[in-house]
Amino acid sequence: MSIATTANAPPQAFPSALSAVLRPLKGLRIVLPFAMVVAIWWAIKWHWALDDRVLASPAQVAIAALQLGNRGILADYAATSLRMMGIAALISALIGVPLGFAIGANRVVARALEGTLRFLQGISGVAWLPLAIIWFGFSDTTKLTVVIYTLVVPIIVNTIVGVRAIPENYVLALQSLGASRLRIMWDVYLPGALPSIVVGLRLGMGYGWRALIAAEMLVRRGGLGDLIFGARTFSQIDRIMVGMVLIGTLYIIVDRLLVQPIETMTLARWGVLRK
């Protein structure tokens, strides 16, 4: 019965016409919207006859991408950024998850640390960049410090949320089976909080990726932020746009192919509802 009702949502004239047009193009669902953006972009470029130092055409950007790609420069810059991100994510998880467990499971620790945590959350990692540069110079350490700082807080916060959302009965049930604290941690808290931890990781990656780009703009020494900021100096708009597209694409790839599958897997597997 319920199938009938959902299949018969209130009729709307315009959408059904649009969907009729779109239905045969199902395979193009992802390409089509971008094709539209490129078309508009091209139209703007032509109509106002914009200088290349103001706006590059899609073709120029494509050529620049090929050139940079062929010489391996693009891969080099991208690899630098991705490596940084990977290291930062790993370290942040190693620090953030245990800390989150401690705060989530213990009232006293929570009282002591939560306020400070919230305060630190408000200071964006990038704000520490000048101080980090003074202390660690224009180095990878500087970038890592800033990115880890940015990443770790959302992971801690979401771990706390995850631990607190675990029904007390789960713990009580295992205790009555004679489980040790470690056992309960491993069998209840970790799997129970995992979906929320992954949510924190995704959010942290969103902040962290941007912090990394910003840090690379200031610190230079490789990375996609360096690429687009350096290209600015010579008004190489085509290069900037290549970098922007790559930054977006890489982020989506990491998010969709790495982080989201873990999230869906844990959610689907255990049927845990995210609160």
Binding site: M1, A4, T5, N8
Partner: peptide, 18 residues
């Protein structure tokens, strides 16, 4: 019985489905 279409009938009278 479940699935016999009674809700469909009600929704049609209500005007949610044509």
């Amino acid at each position: 019985p479940s699935g016999c279409g009674k809700t469909t009938l009600l929704k049609a009278i209500a005007g949610f489905i044509k």
